Computed example of a mutant assay.
Amino acid sequence: MNLPTRILLDTNVWSAFARDGVGPDLFRAVKTAGATLVVPPLILYEALATPSAESRRHLVSLLTMRTWKRLMPEAYTQCLEIISEIRRLRPAWLRSQPDMQRFTKQRYDWTRKTGGLWERARFRTEETGTFLGISDGWSRALLEQARWGSQEQRRLVHSQGVRAIGPLKNFTATFPGNSPEGMGNEPFQLWRVSTWSCTRKALEISRHPYRDWLEPFLDFDLIECSEISWNRFWLREIAEAEMPRLWLQWAFEMLQSTQKVTPGTPGDAALSNYLPECDLVISADANFIRNVERIRDDAPFYIPDAAHVPAGSGMVAETLALIGGRKHQKPKASL
């Protein structure tokens, strides 16, 4: 059975179509190719942060067309992976009676065809941006924290004299001081340390999206009393092939640590979460496309094709050609 090609466009490509007012051309190209255009919430968040009110309205209107396939937030899919691994390795941490009503209500707001968040963004754009804290609320705080983290990571790597990242397979490290309780001093795979640390920090924040998606299923009181088991779960036992999104975010952040940090750097790392949900990703960001290609040989799971389109007046035509099946253009190697 041949399934439609799933295509993911970066924000810069969506912006070009909205700016030129050629959304109908995109719709026809996708329909003619028999493809599916997938839209992550991350792209919608970035659109809602567009400074110009008119540009914001055009971009959000294009993104929220019902014909596209609307994806779930990256926190949701990451948490499903965490729950799946807990079910496999630590079933005792699961609630005997999950709060499915709460979980279903949250998910329904993202998946419903009418009346949900996507429709509110389309018809009540300013109100939705305020509700999501895009400019000065919770979402903005998380973005600023991620930007600060990107800068700190780059400074740390640079201070250690690292100028390039080698193969990501079996990338190991040790803790500078004592290892977490019960873990010994043997080296750890670095992606495990990163996911262990990030998850711990996220769960310490009461309003973090992780808590929204995990709390209906997990007994946090029991987990808090199982520190050694929790450490072993993350640092030794979870399988990277079963947590592709967390691995991808770590891999992108590692590669970005030797690259120029821009305001969009955290967004690129977050966008990598959606690579398992597409067959082709198109972007005008050469570094993003190079990073997708860079991880292809190291990732223990499927990585989609990646195509670079030139910024400027030719971006729309090049994207339409790619959707129509023309050979992908790869960015030139970095100097």
Rank of each mutant, 00 (worst) to 15 (best):
P91Y: 01
W234N: 02
H308I: 02
S257K: 00
R124K: 12
R112Y: 04
G149T: 08
L94T: 01
G129F: 05
M183T: 02
D297I: 07
A49H: 11
E127I: 10
T258K: 05
V157Q: 05
N2S: 14
D221S: 12
L63H: 03
C79R: 10
P216K: 01
P91Q: 00
G267P: 00
R57G: 08
R163E: 13
L203P: 01
E237N: 14
N185C: 10
S229A: 15
Q329M: 15
Q189H: 14
N12P: 11
Q101P: 04
R294Q: 08
L235I: 09
M1D: 14
E186R: 14
G137L: 02
C225R: 15
A33P: 04
P167V: 09
E74F: 11
T67C: 12
Y302L: 13
E204I: 00
L275R: 04
M315Q: 15
D136Q: 08
D285K: 01
G115W: 05
N2V: 13
V60D: 00
E85F: 08
E152M: 13
Q151W: 06
T265M: 07
P276S: 03
H208P: 02
S334Y: 10
P176V: 05
R326C: 11
L322M: 05
L71K: 11
K169L: 11
W14E: 00
V162M: 03
N185E: 12
D285A: 02
E54N: 11
D305H: 10
L89C: 07
R124T: 09
T64P: 02
W93C: 05
C278K: 12
D268A: 07
P263D: 06
R28P: 00
G23F: 08
V309C: 00
G177W: 04
R112G: 05
F220P: 05
P98M: 01
F17W: 05
G314E: 12
F217T: 06
W138C: 05
K201D: 12
S150T: 04
N178K: 11
R107I: 09
C79A: 13
S257G: 00
A239H: 15
R147C: 05
